[in-house]
Design a protein around this nucleic acid. Structure first.
Length: 652
DNA sequence: CAGTTCACGACAA
DNA sequence: CGTGAACTG
């Protein structure tokens, strides 16, 4: 993957840096790159279809580092659907993985867990469901994210072009071909990495004078030597490709020359492959979080707009009328709304008819067994977990958050670490009212801000605020109603069967399809779930407990007397309510410091996207909807944007 | 021999 | 990703 041999050639301009130099800026992060690394810490659980919080912990650790230690605004970008040019390679990889997985499982069953472990590592696959788990964390934490319609690479470069991010964290050298200006690679846990700037290209040695090539020539070069979209020509590496381009300029000339000399064997349809590759590099579909529409990385020139092949390889988009993905040239024919929901992580990126479900929650729903948590958590045992199991039965609010147990555990762990650090770093204990800091309960209280432990909140005002905010990170949609019945089917009848390891690897496909009637942008209000719908659902008691989060949101949606009853303010609310301006570690209040607008944490106009901006079903919000707090929400906002610690340690 | 491509093994987590 | 084997001129 990537451009073989590119990074070594760029060695002269690779600059070791620390993230300090990005203080106050926003950086795009290749979400799947992190997921892949994180997945190695729990390959076994992932392959066996068992719950885990490890990969989330990885994200939390790193996101905390970025935000707290370096004051950087992370902008997570996840891959979406595969584009045509890459689909076959994707399939091959999948095949390899399933191959390894089978071997791993065979070894596992044979009892050879040692060797099985190695093969688990080789078959690690990251799924959109895992991304969703991270996404829900982002929603709670007010971290920006987007699910790219296709490749994250193109999406991230687009964000950079638009000035929404000032740099890109990724391991992929492809980024530079897409036009990335600032690439940060090899980022460590401590925030050190390698920076590659486009502006430094002129400093490259004459051996590899990249700056003397125009963008098109660069694409020619990498296509010759091989990239994600072309196999390249055998025996031609980056350097010979460079020479060829310098000599003959265009791909046409190069191919002619090569064929004349006969030294190299040019694959038959290489030229066509190249053509498609350049399309994908330049015009790949991306999602514009500002306008809430699908666009292309670069604008498609008029003379190419009639090229059908182009629209096939830059990514097929959803047609507004057909409700299928196709090569659509006309922007107004594109269903931007559905793509917005994909970008928000609401719908499955490769099958928009399916709701995207957090992997860990899905596991909770399909196997009723209580999740196997990483470890019983030595410190302060009994505080948080029992806390949750207690309140779960008492109050719906704790289960209504849509946050899985894994998330709780993961967040809790990180919180503990952070508090540990805080403890070390601050010798002045008086800073805040921390009298209760060291009591075992503290962690539990700390958690409450994520999970709406409403009874801890003093005022009625806050209570409402929290419940409305806490409901669920997933936008509350009418689609929940049909889903409920599906889930009922899948969970109620077959509980005993589903327990245990039964679903090895086959846990994926759930009947979460949305009826096509719901795909239209106009949703009859009759689709809003009714009390009858819910009460007639034949849940067992346990089921309803597990499912209460969904049910809750539905109830809440009904009772909410918000102006827009089809789609409660859900995430917009959530992030608005929970945007604290700074994590508690720093003393400097950054709220005010962001004069340059780089840090637009809570009220920032640029912050509106990640999910709140996404148009909701059947509503037509103004294009540049800025989540300006209404007078009604303003006071709540005020109370909300206390420092995190204040929030944690208030009320008891 | 210098320059280059390519296949392998190792990382890290 | 870095290494070394293998190939070329």
């Amino acid at each position: 993957m990537g451009i073989q041999g590119l990074l070594p050639q760029l060695k002269p301009i690779q600059q070791p840096i620390t993230l300090i130099r990005y203080e106050g800026q926003t950086l795009a992060i290749d979400g799947y790159a992190w997921l892949h690394r994180a997945a190695h810490s729990c390959a076994e659980e992932l392959a066996l279809g068992r719950p885990t919080s490890k990969y989330l912990e990885f994200f939390i650790k790193r996101l905390n580092m970025l935000r707290n230690r370096f004051n950087i605004n992370p902008y997570l970008v996840f891959d979406g659907d595969a584009i045509m040019v890459k689909k076959d390679t994707e399939l091959k990889r999948k095949q390899k993985r399933t191959e390894n997985k089978e071997r791993a499982l065979a070894l596992w069953k044979a009892g050879d867990k040692r060797q099985a472990y190695d093969y688990f590592q080789k078959c690690v696959d990251v799924t959109p469901e895992m991304a969703k788990c991270v996404i829900e964390y982002c929603q709670v934490q007010n971290i920006k994210y987007v699910v790219a319609p296709f490749e994250a690479d193109a999406q991230m470069v687009y964000l950079e072009k638009k000035g929404l991010v000032q740099g890109i964290i990724s391991e992929d050298s492809d980024l530079l071909i897409f036009g990335c200006r600032k690439l940060i690679t090899k980022l460590t846990d401590h925030g050190e990495g390698i920076e590659i700037c486009r502006d430094d290209f002129p400093r490259l040695p004459s051996k590899f004078p990249l700056s003397q090539l125009c963008p098109e020539e660069i694409r020619t070069m990498v296509c010759l030597s091989g990239c994600d979209y072309t196999a390249g020509i055998p025996k031609i590496g980056l350097l010979t490709a460079m020479k060829l381009v310098r000599k003959h300029k265009t791909m046409d000339n190069i191919i002619k020359s090569l064929q004349r000399e006969g030294k190299f064997t040019v694959p038959k349809d290489f030229l066509a492959e190249y053509q498609l590759a350049t399309f994908a590099f330049q015009f790949q579909r991306v999602y514009c979080p500002e306008s809430g529409t699908m666009t292309t990385l670069s604008e498609i020139p008029d003379e190419l707009r009639s090229c059908q092949a182009l629209f096939n390889c830059i990514g097929r988009v959803i047609s507004k009328t057909e409700h299928t993905k196709g090569a659509i040239a006309d922007d107004s024919e594109v269903d931007h709304h559905l793509h917005g929901r994909i970008a928000a992580g609401e719908l499955c990126p490769y099958n928009f008819q399916r709701v995207l479900v957090n992997r860990e929650r899905k596991l909770q729903l399909t196997t009723k067994s209580e999740p196997i948590i990483g470890k019983p958590s030595v410190s302060q045992t009994g505080s948080i977990d029992t806390f949750f199991s207690k309140t779960a039965s008492v109050s719906v609010s704790s289960t209504s958050t849509g946050v899985t147990t894994q998330m709780r555990v993961a967040i809790k762990k990180q919180e503990e670490k952070q508090m540990e650090n805080e403890r070390k770093m601050t010798s002045t204990v008086e800073r805040r009212k921390l009298s209760r800091r060291d009591t075992p309960v503290v962690a539990g209280v700390g958690m409450s801000r994520y999970f709406g432990k409403t009874e801890d909140l003093p005022s009625e005002q806050n209570k409402n605020a929290t419940t409305s905010a806490m409901r669920t990170p997933t936008p509350v949609e009418p689609t929940i109603s049909p889903r409920l019945s599906d889930l009922a089917k899948s969970t109620s009848g077959s509980n005993s069967v589903l327990c245990g390891n039964e679903g090895l690897g086959s846990q994926d496909e759930e009947a979460t399809d949305i009826p096509s009637s719901l795909l239209s942008t106009e949703v009859p209000s009759s689709m809003v779930p009714t009390q009858v719908d819910l009460e007639s659902s034949p849940f067992s008691e346990e089921d309803s407990e597990v499912l209460s989060e969904i049910e809750d949101t539905a109830k809440f949606d009904r009772n909410e007397k918000a102006p827009n009853k089809r789609h409660c303010r859900s995430i917009a609310d959530l992030r608005e309510s929970f945007s604290y301006h700074r994590a508690p570690l720093q003393d400097k209040s950054v709220n005010v410091a962001s004069g340059n607008g780089a840090l637009h944490n809570s009220k920032g106009e640029k912050n509106q996207f990640a999910a709140g901006k996404v148009p909701s079903l059947g509503t037509k919000r103004p294009r540049h909807y800025v989540a300006s707090p209404s007078s009604a929400t303003a006071p709540r906002q005020a109370t909300r944007t206390l420092s995190l610690s204040d929030f944690i340690y208030r009320g008891q």
